[in-house]
């Protein structure tokens, strides 16, 4: 008996050693890179033998890890749509997956079309969560500049239980003053209220500041136009607008910089954000 136990003890180290060796060799052979293997739900659904919601949870855990991986963050989450699509195929009532998938795809991934596809898939399920049409509206408004559709989804969202009271007002504002940066700031502020994640909040806060810069620039350029009409020449600097009493003061730059007039083009610019925000145009990666 003792011999047997000793033999087993002797056998354990070589088992581990060969195990590690096999592991090392396998990683050398593997060529598929860092991509995830995501099975098709048409296969996985029957294969899960009725445990589809459990399999959905399992893939949801993988999705969360994927979202948390900085490598994929920098790559703009190329497989996120497939992951969320699989999770929501396996469990179509997985509201949180639609919502998080939809937000991350557009805000971080820059994959607005995929974000809309996921959110609309969730919307078709009629789960009764106002967040889904709300973020759909956000996508249409902020990335695609489709105010009419955005307002439509916001109105839909406002009819659902527990939706915030400001939604109908926001929808009306969208239809009336679509191109106004103030509308965008109002919308983004509401989006911010519904974000828990710190990284997401920072991202949205950044966007709000960008729109504020746009609003200030539009404001200043209107003032310059007035100045030009009154004095027949453009102002030397923005201070002229204040000293001649056209505006009360130069608005503070939200990123901590300042505004100035570009001598060559005559345009108002921010010292921090050199590029003018094309908020009402598509901002799609790829």
């Amino acid at each position: 008996m003792r011999v047997l136990v000793v033999t087993i003890l002797i056998l354990i180290p070589p088992t581990f050693l060969t195990f590690n060796r096999v592991e090392a060799l396998k990683t050398r052979i593997r060529v598929e890179g860092r991509g995830l293997f995501i099975p098709s739900s048409r296969f996985l659904k029957p294969a899960s033998l009725g445990f589809d919601t459990m399999v959905a949870d399992l893939y949801w855990l993988k999705t969360v890890q994927y979202i948390g991986d900085d490598f994929w963050f920098r790559k703009g989450y190329p497989q996120l749509f497939d992951l969320v699509n699989l999770v929501t195929d396996m469990d179509p009532r997985f509201e949180y997956a639609y919502e998080v998938g939809g937000i991350i795809l557009s805000v971080y991934g820059g994959r607005v079309d995929e974000s809309i596809r996921i959110l609309e898939k969730g919307y078709r399920q009629r789960l009764g969560y106002w967040e889904i049409p709300f973020f759909l509206g956000f996508n249409y408004f902020y990335y695609l500049g489709d105010y009419r559709k955005a307002a439509l989804y916001l109105t839909e969202a406002s009819r659902l239980p527990r939706s915030p009271k400001y939604l109908p007002k926001l929808a009306a504002k969208l239809l009336a003053k679509a191109g106004d940066p103030e509308t965008a700031i109002a919308f983004l502020t509401e989006v911010l209220k519904n974000m828990d994640d710190e990284r997401m909040r920072k991202e949205i806060e950044e966007r709000i500041k960008e729109v504020m810069v746009e609003r200030d620039i539009q404001h200043l350029e209107r003032a310059i136009k007035v100045y030009r009409e009154r004095f027949g020449r453009p102002p030397e600097g923005l201070e002229d607008l204040v000293s001649k009493g056209i505006i009360d003061r130069i608005p503070p730059e939200p990123f901590g910089g300042y505004y100035y007039i570009d001598k060559e083009t005559g345009e108002v610019k921010s010292s921090v954000k050199k590029e003018r925000l094309k908020i009402y145009k598509k901002r799609v990666r790829r």
Binding site: T7, I8, L11, F19, R21, V22, L25
Partner: peptide, 24 residues
């Protein structure tokens, strides 16, 4: 040549593991 090494070590792993289970 990694392939053949893989076969060799996988086999060894299988044999060692089986030996332990068998002795148990």
């Amino acid at each position: 040549g990694v392939g053949l090494k893989l076969i060799l070590f996988s086999t060894l792993y299988g044999l060692f593991y089986t030996a332990i289970i068998f002795l148990l």
